[in-house]
């Protein structure tokens, strides 16, 4: 186990390094002059040249990369193109709001999707089973911004049950904080839960055919015991895999939901940066998101390997 962990972490180092190279050159391959774009019609060649020099953008490309990369090692995400302020503290400021929203919505996805999928798989052909596939497709096709808007219009405007957004730190007022998280978390996660349900269903159906389950019923164990001891426990595994797989969609959806609910998270920061055309900020934020994605997937893999003895270490 330890060896496996060490191996995975060693692989991570070249992976993250390649990611920075790829992202940096991907962003710099986009044609056009971002400084002129940012300054708009007021820009003059002198102004552009001065800003370039101040932000170190007149250096050769490889040197710009090296400065960025060396900074990353010290936890320095570079500077903002707009005002030259360091990016790291700005990002750190935004992380709690995003983390809270992501965790709440992951919780909702699993809390809704897992029981549904498990029941559908256990009772194949029942009504839950039959509506699952269409609902999953419906969920995939429902845009997050639309769902979020409908939720605001119904639950915030019409019924007045929840505020239409605005973040309060959990440490300040836990209950109000969670009340405010519920609507955006729901909008972010609800369309992914039928997908989770569908995969849990598939896993459960396969489990029912496993020799150890058949043998258990042959031994005369009660159906409830079999469900609890053999089916339920093993159906938890795919949840892990799916969490890693759906994270990309979740991180993307975050950008939209944070905008809609005025949620001061990393996603909203990305949009603010994009609107102001601060590509240095945006570049670092994309890296942060990608690294989170890679790390969570690593964590999921390791957890999966430690829970499932069939995964070869």
């Amino acid at each position: 186990m330890l060896g496996y962990l060490v191996r995975r972490i060693l692989v991570l180092i070249p992976l993250l390094f390649s990611l920075t190279v790829l992202l940096f050159f991907y962003i710099h391959a986009v044609p056009g002059d971002p400084i002129a774009g940012m300054l708009g019609p007021d820009s003059t060649p002198e102004l552009i040249a001065r800003l370039r020099h101040e932000r170190g953008l007149d250096l050769p490309l490889w040197e710009q990369y090296w400065r960025w990369f060396a900074g990353l090692f010290r936890g320095d995400l570079g500077i903002s193109l707009i005002n030259g302020a360091p990016v790291t503290p700005i990002v750190i400021n935004r992380i709690p709001a995003t983390l809270q929203l992501t965790l709440c919505s992951l919780f909702l996805i699993v809390a809704i999707g897992f029981p549904l999928g498990f029941l559908a798989g256990k009772h194949q052909g029942s009504w839950i089973d039959r509506i699952l596939s269409p609902t999953a497709l419906l969920g995939l096709s429902t845009p997050a911004f639309w769902l979020g808007t409908l939720l605001i219009l119904i639950f915030a405007v019409r019924l007045g049950w929840f505020p239409a957004g605005g973040y309060i730190p959990f440490s300040e007022d836990p209950i109000e904080s969670l009340r405010r998280t519920l609507l955006p978390a729901f909008a972010l996660g609800i369309n992914l839960s039928p997908l989770l349900a569908r995969l849990v269903r598939a896993a459960t159906v396969e489990l029912k055919r496993e020799p150890f389950v058949i043998q258990a019923s042959g031994r005369g164990l009660k159906p409830n015991t079999i469900t609890r001891r053999y089916l339920l426990r093993n159906a938890v595994l795919p949840v892990l895999v799916i969490v890693g797989m759906q994270l990309g969609g979740l991180l993307g959806g975050q950008v939209i939901i944070e905008q809609l609910f005025s949620w001061p998270g990393v996603g909203r920061l990305l949009v603010e940066g994009a609107v102001q055309r601060d590509y240095l900020l945006v570049q670092s934020l994309i890296l942060v998101v990608a690294v989170i994605y890679v790390l969570v997937n690593l964590a999921v893999d390791v957890l999966h390997a430690s829970l499932d003895p069939r995964v070869k270490l």
């Binding site: 990611l19 992202l23 962003i27 990309g248 969609g249 991180l251 993307g252 959806g253 950008v255 939209i256 990305l270 949009v271 994009a274 590509y279 945006v282 570049q283 934020l285 994309i286 998101v289 990608a290 994605y293 890679v294 997937n297």
Partner: peptide
């Protein structure tokens, strides 16, 4: 590994 919408925004 980079979420599509995030990359597109970039």
């Amino acid at each position: 590994a980079i979420p599509g919408l995030v990359l597109a925004v970039g």
